[in-house]
């Protein structure tokens, strides 16, 4: 159970990125955050695992206020929260294996990681995760030799290595084409349904939102502009979507069944 209460983030230059946002995410939820670029989605997600320091508010996760955590306690909380990024954020020059193993850093003593060593169990786990995601044959390639979809799988693999109970996904498919977008989203859905991980994911496309979300919140200018359940989002029309989302809203297309359309957002 994650409870965000009155969360506010004001950057040094005075920009109010997130303004008094409160919401709850139940265990096993698939929460989708929608909103324009610059509406505060990324900041909100990064406040949860404290990559960005919130200015005000509380983030209660399993009874602990994440905002109050420091040092070791913060790192121990972080390692249970996997994170996936729009631009994958892999270390390009390191191998796929090293990138995946770096998900175990929170469990590895400093001196060992200084030497680049991981336990045999970690290696075993990395092999399993890579196989599960279907990129076992890429293990020893350099990360930047992989295609975009494969790189995002490495990103997911790195998050899975943390054995997380919650995954934060910051526009995980915005850099991918529609087919790959669905395949990555299906991976997340699988983690949500089979492994009971809580997923908080920001998305741009209405059909993806309708297909995968169990709950939706919409952000506009850092404030919550929309809350909806799965049934409510199913009933939503394009026009309603555009109303809360702005004119830039796009459908990916008709998903896997329909013909593939090029998306202007894909290059973003």
């Amino acid at each position: 159970m994650l409870e965000v209460r009155h969360l506010t983030k004001i950057y040094d230059d005075g920009t109010v990125a997130v303004n008094d946002v409160s919401f709850e995410v139940a265990e096993g939820d698939f929460l989708v955050i929608i909103g324009l670029s610059g509406s505060g989605k990324s900041t909100l997600l990064r406040c949860i695992n404290r990559l960005i320091e919130p200015t005000e508010g509380e983030i209660i996760w399993n009874g602990v206020d994440l905002v109050q955590l420091q040092g070791e306690d913060l790192r121990n909380a972080r390692r249970q929260i996997g994170m996936i990024f729009q631009h994958f954020n892999l270390v390009n020059r390191s191998s796929v294996l090293t990138n995946v193993l770096s998900g175990r850093l929170g469990y590895t003593p400093s001196w060992k990681s200084l030497l680049g060593r991981f336990s045999p169990e970690d290696l075993e786990k990395a092999t399993q995760v890579l196989e599960r995601l279907g990129i076992a044959d890429q293990t020893h390639k350099r990360a930047d030799e992989l295609s975009g979809g494969q790189q995002q799988r490495v990103g997911v693999a790195r998050a899975l290595m943390q054995e997380p109970t919650m995954i934060l996904a910051d526009e995980p498919v915005a850099s991918l084409d529609p087919v790959l977008a669905h395949s990555i989203m299906q991976q997340l859905e699988l983690l949500n349904q089979e492994d009971d991980m809580t997923i908080i994911c920001s998305l741009h496309y209405l059909d993806l939102v309708q297909r995968y979300a169990s709950n939706v919140i919409g952000l506009r200018d850092g404030e919550i502009a929309y809350r909806g359940s799965k049934t409510e989002i199913q009933a939503m029309t394009d026009d309603e979507f555009k109303e809360i989302y702005g004119e830039e809203a796009e459908r990916v297309g008709h998903g896997l069944e329909g013909e593939l359309q090029s998306t202007p957002e894909a290059e973003k």
Binding site: Q80, G82, M83, N89, L105, S113, L114
Partner: peptide
Amino acid sequence: GPIEAIEATGANWLQ
């Protein structure tokens, strides 16, 4: 990006 991603795994400064 990669620095952010490694931080998010719970790695300490040195790692």
